[in-house]
Design a protein around this nucleic acid. Structure first.
Lengths: 222, 222
DNA sequence: ACCCCCATCAACCGATCGGTGGATGCCGCC
DNA sequence: GGCGGCATCCACCGATCGGTTGATGGGGGT
């Protein structure tokens, strides 16, 4: 019997997952959570074999600062994954997500999740993934596998300096180099230098693509 | 007895909706569809009182050409809404969506849907919305109401032509005007004209801001 | 010492961009 | 007919951008 905790902020999705799990005779739903924090609390008290974790549970949107402290007031799926595994490394976590291009999938991988499935997957595939993970294997939806391959193929982690990010954010607002220079009390040559360094790091040749790629990579907020 | 057809491409979400509806004694689920086209076909054959319509059902992504013909091989939720209402104006359609800032919500409004609810809403609120729409009223989730207010407060609807959107999408990929011109088999002057018109419509002065604003407005995919 | 990263700055140049003035033709609507 | 929207195109011009060459100085690590 696989004992499962279901964590998803959408009541409809949560009951859809629960309904699916109740069709499997070897699966028992021991609890439901609607926030990352609740998921952590229930995982630690119920000690399920497995948690189905939605990655996109709400986090305060006021600032892009992640809360590295798991005891913070709100946790997304990846942070909840890390918190659960820190306290109970025996629990296995399956990440269930809508998108295969979400930066937070990579965060969940780094946090140690064992399964990565898409909500759009057929129900038999989800159940097969659950059994696989319960046996100690890793379950990976094909499109998520493709995402990992693409990410591994990009060898270096891209990291912009604070000044580079500042300049790029102003570019995203439509400001010209001279205007940015005036805003930051530096010369236009300095702005251009920061941008050229940014282009190198991102592997692009123009400001517009630098902005859109930085947004895709989560370097700039969307 | 309210007879309902449920249209959603995610099996989990669909069964979650069906499970919710089966808790209501005055509701009968008469069918389930997983694509826009299937939703249209079932709506026309089953003649439900109401369709729960997911807006984000897959459409082919191979070309930016929209298929204006509802009989085309694939339909998103808004197009399916229009097709159903064209043939059966008596059917009421509730749009169920994840996001409140989705451009396709506005398309569904224009297509004549009667209800707009969020998947994240509590289940009682979704049932209340269903009953309201079945009585002939309009059901509107508060955040979608806020979206409409914001959209109405911006006097002119921003609408780019297909060609303008094509050009802007290539700009977002970092392509220069000469490169875009070659890609689209037009002159550079044509590309510049499309861009200038786009800047006017969006109220911006440069390509980069045009791209980021178009993304914020849902005109370009993020 | 060296190396790397970061921030700052300059001059020069060609390419590109945005703006401004036009223009044509097609389609749909009144 | 007129009007508006759309797609296409031109020439010209100044501003901006991206690239290329440098340069300085500070801080941290080995």
């Amino acid at each position: 019997m696989i004992r499962i905790l279901v964590a998803d902020d959408h009541p409809i999705v949560r009951s859809g997952i629960v309904a699916l799990l109740q069709t499997a005779p070897d699966v028992e739903v021991v609890g439901e959570a609607s926030t990352g924090r609740e998921a952590v609390a229930l995982a630690l008290s119920l000690k399920p074999d497995l948690v189905m974790m939605d990655l996109r549970m709400p986090v305060p949107t006021s600032t892009p600062n992640p809360a590295p402290n798991p005891a913070a007031s709100s946790l997304d799926g990846a942070a909840a994954t890390a918190a659960i595994l820190a306290a109970e490394p025996g629990i296995r976590i399956i990440v269930l997500t809508t998108y295969e291009s979400d930066e937070s999938i990579l965060a969940a991988i780094e946090a140690g999740a064992s399964g990565y499935l898409l909500k759009a997957a057929p129900q038999e595939e989800i159940l097969a993934g659950i059994r696989s993970v319960a046996r100690g294997e890793v379950a990976l939806a094909p499109s998520i596998a493709a995402l990992l391959v693409r990410r591994v193929a990009r060898p270096a982690t891209i990291s912009l300096s604070e000044r580079e990010k500042q300049v790029l954010a102003l570019v995203a607002k439509g400001q010209s180099n001279p205007t940015i220079a005036r805003s930051l009390f530096v010369s236009e040559a300095t702005v251009k230098t920061h941008l050229l360094h940014t282009f190198e790091k991102l592997g692009v040749n123009d400001r517009t693509r630098a902005v859109t790629l930085a947004m895709e990579l989560g370097i700039l907020p969307r």
